[in-house]
Nucleic acid binder design. Structure first.
Lengths: 145, 145
DNA sequence: TCTTGACCTTCCTATCATGGGAAGCCTTAT
DNA sequence: ATAAGGCTTCCCATGATAGGAAGGTCAAGA
């Protein structure tokens, strides 16, 4: 199997396969006499493992750890689970951060009538003093009550 | 005000101020005779606007549009609102994507007992065939019912 | 056998926003 | 005068991915 076929079979682009090889995530593939990379089904399976891990948001250095555990028959499933839980935590932190942005933006957008007049609480908010956007909104909301 | 003071006053690092200048997001600052950048309170306000927009996740090219509207006294607030709504949409798409990862990971982690034995449904799932992780889980769940 | 098109190779570039660091100049306080 | 600390520019790195150029290779059809 050459790199294009391995790419199709694994769902990892040829570019990325070469990249993973260059950073040592996967071992260097065999070569034909003319220099083409050659892949076996075992290596395609490895690539699929990587693709799936990437789909779950694992960064490459975590995938390295996952692979080490995958290959280790004496692994403790606790170690795998820990990696998964850490990944969940990291994703949740990012989600919360973005959710905060969304909440703020929604409040600002709700306050903006969105017509052809120039008055806009969104710009007013972005353009003003020291207070952070979110604190500012909290203050405005509580003083409105 | 030199760049360090402007950085403290705006919450934007000196590095980033120079960067924003280099990409044309902000006009080139004035200079002292010896070449130091000089900032006025107006420019610090501009930097604050940028910092706040960044805190809401706007990419630099969107901030350029926001700034153009900020400066335009004849703007339509609808245009500002549209930018905000697009930003909300983009953030929500990312949140949903990550939420999908979290859901999958949680199901896998729940199925892993996390002890010192090597058997691990997480690795089993990552290491297996063609089916996508999420489809796979859906199938496993429905066949378990 | 020759040609052609599709594939492979390496190497360079870019993304996006940010930080680190080096070498050298400037300013300010002692 | 000297030392510390801030400023300048320039280069490099991040993380994962894609684009592209220049050149070699393979396979199918004329």
């Amino acid at each position: 199997m050459n790199i294009g076929e391995a790419a199709k079979a694994s769902g990892v682009s040829a570019k990325m396969i070469r990249y993973y090889e260059s950073i040592g995530l996967i071992p260097a593939a065999g070569r034909t006499g003319s220099g083409y990379r050659v892949y076996t089904t075992t290596e395609v399976q490895l690539l699929r493992f990587i693709r799936r891990s990437r789909n779950l948001g694992f960064p490459v250095d975590r995938i390295e750890e996952l692979l080490a555990l995958w290959r280790d028959r004496g692994r403790h499933s606790a170690d795998v689970k820990r990696l998964a839980m850490e990944q969940i935590d990291g994703l949740e932190r990012k989600v919360q951060e973005m959710q905060g942005m969304i909440d703020t933006l929604r409040q600002l957008a709700d306050a903006c009538c969105g017509d052809d007049r120039p008055d806009c609480p969104i710009l007013a908010d972005l353009g003003q003093g020291d207070v952070s956007v979110r604190t500012e909104i909290r203050q405005r909301l509580s003083s409105a009550r």
